[in-house]
Write a protein that binds this DNA or RNA. Structure first.
Lengths: 195, 195
DNA sequence: AAAAAGTATTGATAAATATCAACTACTCAT
DNA sequence: ATGAGTAGTTGATATTTATCAATACTTTTT
């Protein structure tokens, strides 16, 4: 829980009262989840928002052929949820599962709604999260339509090395929208270029 | 301005007082912009947020080879800005220009900040916009990494037919991240399939 | 320690998409 | 009306990326 409070303080200047801290502690429930365990399955409604205090998770779809397509990775200090399902109460088409044993702080939709109204700092935090999310999404979209497979990989290596270190190569390939074989070849070439 | 007020009422249940309406009228300045005129140029800082009351605009980058890459279209009831530059005050790497003669309501960053604090309905509106934006971005990212060029075009035809009607084919191709020639061939094939 | 399951690499080939070039149709300004 | 400039199409070819198959390497399980 300390991790989370530090995170809040880092992203909002607004002070938080003792009372508010207690209220947050009541709303966010710690949860442990083991490797390969699901946090959300396709067909479910996503009722919780999860803050990752430890571990690594991924959000993905599975297509007709059984191939997984990863849309999002999450590690410490990231939030996980299917935003669409969470906000609209719709059935999710995504799966979220743990790639490492993980620890989360989960809040139910109703409590999240309540807390954003009663605690000013949380409203600011939400706005800040949304802003960062929007900027990141814009960049990823731009990368997807303008860059080649190799450029996208190098871009990720530069801007999100943590993901590349913690997830296996086939998942990185899926996130980049390329086949594992192609990524393997790209890495080989990049390596050869640096002698 | 009426268009805009209707838009606000459509997306927020929160009532707006007479006083607040006046305050909004003061903050949003009408602006006309002619076809091919720039709203934002690469290298500028994006100081305004623009609500489109009439017309069609696009946001894009230009690469080393002079090729344009469109990341966003905007028509009536859409907002245009480089979110990153607008929120962070950083130099923009995007261009925004008008494809049709257009009419906008522009608000300066400072006023936007102010109005979101003083008018509850605007705070709700912002949250709602961010939510929709996040959901749309997630979908577009998913489409980019999972779908083929043809599937992406058909997806767009289904979900955003307005764009396809109002922008020329080479711009649609750019938005989809494919060459104009490929889009031309995809359309021919799709047409042949329907006899 | 051996077996099994998952992960990464490599080669051969196929499919998707880009590029280049020529041509057609269309718009629009004079 | 005419010619210049855009936009779209089509064909030939090149490049990129995917797919399939075999093998090597790692990690996990027993």
């Amino acid at each position: 829980m300390e991790t989370f409070f530090n995170y809040i303080r880092r992203y909002t200047e607004h002070p938080i009262s003792e009372e508010e801290l207690l209220s947050l502690q009541g709303a966010f429930k710690p949860r442990k989840i083991r490797k390969r365990q699901y946090l959300l399955q396709e067909g479910d409604v996503c009722r919780h928002l999860s803050f990752i205090t430890k571990g690594a998770l991924r959000q993905y779809t599975v297509d007709d052929k059984g191939v997984e397509h990863i849309v999002q990775f999450g590690i410490e200090d990231w939030w996980m949820s299917d935003r669409e399902s969470f906000e609209l109460g719709s059935v999710s088409s995504y799966n979220i599962d743990a790639w490492e044993d993980s620890e989360l702080l989960q809040i139910h939709y109703d409590d999240w709604w309540e807390i954003r109204h009663s605690i000013p700092a949380m409203r600011i935090l939400t706005a800040e999260m949304d802003k960062r999310h929007a900027v990141a999404a814009q960049k990823r979209i731009h990368a997807a339509i303008t860059l080649t497979a190799e450029e996208r990989y190098l871009d990720m290596l530069k801007h999100q090395p943590a993901f590349i270190q913690r997830f296996p190569q086939n998942m990185i390939a899926s996130y980049l929208g390329i086949s594992p074989e192609t990524l393997s070849r790209i890495r080989k070439q990049a390596y050869l270029k640096n002698e």
